[in-house]
Nucleic acid binder design. Structure first.
Length: 308
DNA sequence: CACTTGACCTGTCCGC
DNA sequence: TGCGGACAGGTCAAGT
């Protein structure tokens, strides 16, 4: 569920909350959620300061002063929630410092959520020296956190094969068209979801951008022109930026680093709107399955293209 | 290599 | 009310 806009929203929050904090300990209770051993943690994370928080596609990268980084993939249900030190909540005092956590003085916007942490879906807890904590929650255990040397990040298969970021300045319609030709027989939806072609777009924004470009999700790539891909690329950028503005999409699980939900789905044109009218032409939006995914489209303005 | 399917998981919802 | 099954969808491994 977290796609590029959700991950970017989390990244911005973490950058503000974590920068310059120092790690004092790490707890985890599910091996696959954090495969590193205690020696790695002791040598490369404990005592380290957070220097930057970056993003590549759907992955969060928390860089440390030791030259190592936490690489975090939220997959379907992962959450990264920052909980300020207890005393910044209890002391109901006006803020005098520059610590962003102090804006929670007098009550965090989502106290109830934060106060309930850790809960049964908490997999990893990163504790900072001031008592604040970062919780990695993941109901379905698909996501993971790994501690890895910056010099080795691109030796991981996932990053080696990752395509250009959907919002990266190194991408344009022409490059996207060329990359997509590698899978010319596949439905366009499958190819947009393929992170090795283009990084960051998931199910929600694929449906939304295909609607914007008036392309049927099942259309084989080989039937699409450069002009259509130019339009599709523009739509991808448009829906991603709009969603970042709205704080992302909250279906069930997603919250940002401060526990807040996103509102993009209120603005969605087709996603989860089967049975409703298409905002462009008034036809009834349908839901089908394409490459095993729930797929929403307007049968009238996204007509299937005939193979001639 | 291109492409498809099943596995990884848990919570929720639907029909009986 | 309980119970089985389908579904949610990001990625990898294994299949054709």
């Amino acid at each position: 569920m977290p796609e590029l806009p959700e991950v970017e929203t989390i990244r911005v929050g973490l950058e503000r909350m974590l920068k310059t904090r120092t790690i004092s300990s790490i707890d985890f209770n599910w091996e696959k959620s954090f495969p590193n051993n205690t020696q790695d943690v002791k040598n490369h994370a404990i005592g380290a300061k957070v220097t930057h928080v970056k993003r590549l596609g759907k992955v969060i990268i928390i860089e440390l002063s030791t030259g190592y980084s936490f690489i975090i993939h939220l997959k379907m249900t992962g959450q990264l929630i920052f909980a300020p030190a207890l005393n910044s909540i209890i002391h109901n005092l006006p803020s005098t410092s520059n610590d962003p956590a102090d804006r929670f003085a007098g009550g965090h916007p989502n106290d109830s959520l934060i106060n309930d942490l850790p809960d049964k879906s908490t997999r990893v807890i990163i504790v900072f020296t001031d008592g604040s904590k970062l919780f990695f929650n993941d109901q379905r255990k698909f996501g993971w956190v790994r501690l890895i040397a910056n010099t080795e990040i691109f030796s991981i298969d996932f990053f080696k094969k990752l395509g250009p970021d959907a919002l990266g300045s190194d991408l344009n319609g022409e490059i996207l068209f060329k990359r997509m030709q590698r899978r010319k027989n596949s439905p366009v939806k499958a190819v947009i979801l393929d992170q090795t072609i283009l990084a960051g777009v998931g199910n929600i924004y694929t449906d939304e951008s295909l609607w914007g470009a008036k392309i049927n999700p099942a259309t084989p790539v080989k039937l699409l022109s450069q002009k259509q891909i130019d339009k599709l690329y523009k739509e991808i950028v448009f829906v991603m930026k709009l969603s970042i503005e709205k704080g992302g999409s909250t279906d069930k699980n997603y919250v940002d680093a401060e526990g807040k939900k996103g509102s993009y789905l209120k603005f969605a044109k087709v996603f989860r709107r089967e049975g409703q009218e298409c905002p462009r032409c008034g036809s009834i939006i349908e839901k089908t399955r394409v490459v095993g995914r729930g797929t929403h489209f307007c049968p009238s303005c996204q007509k299937p293209k005939e193979i001639k």
